[in-house]
Write a protein that binds this DNA or RNA. Structure first.
Lengths: 230, 230
DNA sequence: GTAACAGCTGACCGTAAGTCATTTACTTAA
DNA sequence: TTAAGTAAATGACTTACGGTCAGCTGTTAC
């Protein structure tokens, strides 16, 4: 009986090896410039075998991408568990997203690429469903934290949690795309440090979502801290 | 003497015809799924001829994209000239960007695609330079308007014009990407109308950049309008 | 030992980007 | 008018890559 299970394990392991090879190649060259032959060689398998595990190159690409989604989820969970107030949770999630962007740039680019309607052609239903489910999980997580922030009086109660989540996320995302492609350009031409700007912009937006009391309390403690520093 | 010039004109005209054909095909199918044979047929030329005018498929793609950049610039110019105050100019530019997104979605997607580091491989120096120049022009335009807004006391003078421009632009851009790919998803799952959210988010961010007096004056006139409406 | 089977292989196919020797169309000059 | 010269256009060809499939190989079951 154990044979069935061993085979199951081996198959899973083989799939994982393919994903490792694919990840390596995709990270180096991107979807377009990577070839299935190259990935097969990196995995020490023949090309045909790849197609026993994945429907197409795009399918394989998405499978690698889901690893990135898992990683981001883990970072979010860690951020949430380490924070002490809902407001702090929101901030730490923002930080986690920025950490993800900085330290796992290749995964970020995959997410970005996945957005394009150019894509979704040769992808299996299954893989699409997995991506959707993971995506949903991540959004649920972010929204629920913001909801708690509103309920506990940190954020204005005339705001919608989902709307806030989308605004905060998209605001960071937009700047990250800019940073990924034009970091040097903006530094040289306009003297702008995009890295710092993401922090600043997130904080600006978050503040405009806070209740007046919380914002005032915060700016008071901020001032006090500044005085201590100087 | 006139022959040289006529030939020049004809060549320009031919180039334009190729661009028309390419635009049509690219809009329908995107970069990946469009073929040079298809574009050649649409242009009623042979494939080889395309390569006399453009270095590669990507080069041709970028050439079409620069038309979109021109279009956006025109919309911005129109918006700026029609507005009466710097604050109004900023708002109308935001609206112009959103109009561009809604009415020239295919160009927006091209811009988006151009962002990817996956891209810039087979592109000629010349085309790259043209894209950069146009990009620079657009940013200059946006930044100069915001600078005036600060100088004339509409926006806080502790803010940097370039930073504000990037924040406002990226904020809208991030939401547009979301809207382009997940409009239905967010409506169905979270009851969020992304279309309205872009307006809301832009206004929220813009308000947080205003000086206190201007913001108060604005919210007063807003309240008065609301009372008139009800 | 051998039949049955799952997993793997790589030669092969179709398609599409890009090239280039040749043809066509037009200009110039005798 | 025509022949030489030149610029533009052609499409068959090369190369490369995604995807397929008939057959091979090593393992299990009897």
């Amino acid at each position: 009986m154990g044979i069935q299970e061993r085979k199951e394990r081996e198959k899973e392991h083989r799939r994982d090896e393919i994903l490792n090879a694919a990840q390596k190649v995709f990270f180096e060259k991107g979807l377009q410039a990577s070839t299935m032959d190259e990935i097969a060689e990196a995995a020490e398998l023949s090309k045909g075998t790849l197609y026993l595990y994945f429907k197409s190159k795009e399918d394989l690409y998405l499978a690698v991408m889901t690893r990135g989604m898992e990683l981001l989820q883990d970072l979010f969970d860690k951020a949430i568990s380490e924070a002490d107030s809902p407001l702090d949770q929101i901030r730490k999630m923002g930080q986690a997203y920025r950490t993800f962007f900085n330290e796992h740039r290749n995964f970020f680019r995959m997410f970005s690429f996945f957005q394009h309607p150019q894509f979704h052609k040769q992808v299996s239903e299954d893989m699409m469903a997995i991506c959707h489910a993971r995506n949903q999980e991540i959004w649920q997580k972010v929204i629920s934290i913001i909801k708690r922030g509103i309920e506990q009086g940190f954020l204005r109660d005339d705001l919608d949690p989902a709307e806030c989540a989308i605004m905060l996320w998209s605001n960071s995302y937009g700047l990250m795309v800019r940073m990924d492609t034009q970091l040097e350009y903006f530094r040289e031409n306009f003297g702008v440090d995009l890295e710092k700007l993401i922090d600043k912009s997130s904080e600006l937006l978050l503040q405009s979502m806070m209740t007046d009391e919380v914002r005032e309390k915060m700016s008071f403690s901020r001032t006090r801290n500044d005085e201590q520093h100087s």
